[in-house]
């Protein structure tokens, strides 16, 4: 009888311990489960935000790359066009200069030369000057200087050495300290940017 009751007490104790342990374990499992779920949830959030960050950064990089490629391609194309246009402009210039060399010395040219001589003499303003011109214009310049009353006031000499220019004159003081370059070459060079603009407009069909 005594043995039976002690067995039953033992059994109750064991059951109680087991039940307590079971509850503990279940609570621990529950807690671990919840912890894991929370970890998973927070990891998911951080993974998602990391994923979004990577995608955003890739999109930005792709956008930059696209902009860079488009930008440099447009720029290269524009630069090639500039070089081509410049080549054509230079060709036009060369041809124009050749044409000017062979142009006839008509009345208009005489008037131009007269104006250039006047400008040169007044710019230098000395009483002893030298005029230089190319071989073709030598006779014309001789006439222009001889038939004016300039010779009465100043000493004017035509240089014996012709200069290699398209046209126009170069006036110098006799001591060679002052020079006025009224040659067509220097004028063309000076006005080149304006002439270039007109040629480019013509080439592009803008005028």
């Amino acid at each position: 009888m005594q043995l039976m009751s002690s067995n039953s007490a033992l059994e109750r104790t064991v059951n109680k311990v087991l039940s307590e342990k079971e509850s503990d374990l279940i609570a621990q499992i529950d807690s671990a489960y919840h912890e894991s779920m929370n970890n998973l949830e927070s990891s998911r959030e951080s993974i998602e935000s990391e994923y979004e960050r990577i995608i955003d950064s890739a999109k930005k990089q792709a956008e930059n790359l696209k902009r860079q490629i488009i930008g440099s391609t447009r720029l290269n194309a524009r630069n090639k066009q500039l070089l081509l246009v410049e080549g054509a402009v230079n060709e036009v210039f060369e041809k124009a200069k050749l044409a000017m060399r062979s142009v006839g010395r008509d009345e208009n040219y005489k008037q131009l030369m007269n104006r250039l001589v006047d400008e040169g003499l007044s710019a230098i303003g000395n009483d002893n000057m030298i005029i230089e011109c190319n071989k073709t214009d030598t006779e014309l310049v001789k006439k222009l200087t001889a038939f004016t009353d300039r010779q009465k006031k100043i000493k004017l000499a035509l240089s014996e050495k012709p200069i290699d220019v398209i046209g126009g004159v170069r006036v110098r003081s006799a001591d060679l300290t002052l020079t006025y370059d009224g040659t067509l070459d220097s004028r063309i060079e000076r006005l080149k940017p304006l002439i270039r603009k007109s040629i480019v407009q013509m080439l592009r069909g803008e005028s």
């Binding site: 060679l176 300290t177 002052l178 020079t179 006025y180 004028r187 000076r190 940017p193 304006l194």
Partner: peptide, 12 residues
């Protein structure tokens, strides 16, 4: 751009 041509000086 001016059409005027400047004077060249050599007395430095």
């Amino acid at each position: 751009m001016s059409e005027t041509v400047g004077i060249e000086y050599t007395k430095v």
